[in-house]
């Protein structure tokens, strides 16, 4: 008979447990799901497609400010320029050109302005074999030394290309050398990287993730 009394007891306990459970569910005592950690918005500059610098070609094409490229605004036409060198055979640049860092090529082999600029007409460039090249056609000059890279560039596999891969649907645009490289200091400059990935569950808050209170 003892067991007989236990069934009602069990049933009553179950009724109460169910009701307590229902109340727990309704009050959501286990809490909402954990809030996602803040992720700061990414600096819009990282999604900009602008080239590393503005080439002379681009300036002329977009009719930008080309005054920088008009040498005879300051220099005197017809007057021969003489370059000065220090004891290490580094060219000494005048104050007007102190924005230029001479770092083209290793071992100081390329520190003479007239390796590239035409000493007779500062507004054009000259190749080693004596051809003159317009400043906005600089890639011809670069190509006269950097053969393999020039070949790659012509094939579109060196340097930036943008626009349409399918030229029947739109224009393909190929950037010139100086859109990325500063001719005086052609090495692509280091830059700040965009932020790395944010984990779905940061390790620090992993333990509070288990949202049992």
């Amino acid at each position: 008979m003892k067991a007989e009394r236990k069934t009602p007891l069990v049933l009553s306990i179950l009724t109460i447990s169910f009701l307590i459970l229902a109340a727990t569910f309704l009050t959501d005592i286990w809490g909402k799901s954990a809030q996602l950690p803040e992720i700061p918005p990414v600096d819009p500059s990282f999604t900009k497609t602008a080239t590393a610098r503005v080439s002379a070609e681009e300036l002329y094409r977009t009719k930008g400010d080309t005054s920088m490229l008009e040498c005879y605004g300051c220099h005197e036409q017809g007057k021969e320029l003489t370059l000065k060198f220090d004891e290490d055979h580094n060219v000494i640049l005048p104050d007007e050109h102190d924005d230029i860092i001479m770092a083209h090529g290793t071992h100081n082999r390329n520190n003479n302005c007239f390796n590239c600029h035409d000493e007779h007409n500062l507004e054009v460039l000259q190749t080693r074999d004596g051809r003159t090249v317009k400043i906005q056609d600089g890639h011809d000059l670069c190509g006269s030394c950097h053969g393999p890279t020039y070949r790659d560039w012509l094939a579109g596999i060196h340097g930036r290309t943008s626009g349409f891969w399918n030229v029947s649907m739109g224009e393909k645009h190929r950037e010139t050398c100086t859109a990325c490289h500063d001719p005086h200091q052609p090495k692509f400059l280091p830059r700040k990287p965009a932020p790395g990935p944010n984990p779905l569950r940061p390790v620090e808050v992993k333990h509070s993730e288990g949202k049992a209170h």
Binding site: A3, K6, T7, L9, V10, L11, I13, L14, S17, F18, L21
Partner: peptide, 12 residues
């Protein structure tokens, strides 16, 4: 009663 308790607990 044991059956009810067991089934009830599982249901919970």
């Amino acid at each position: 009663w044991r059956y009810y308790a067991w089934m009830g607990a599982l249901t919970l």
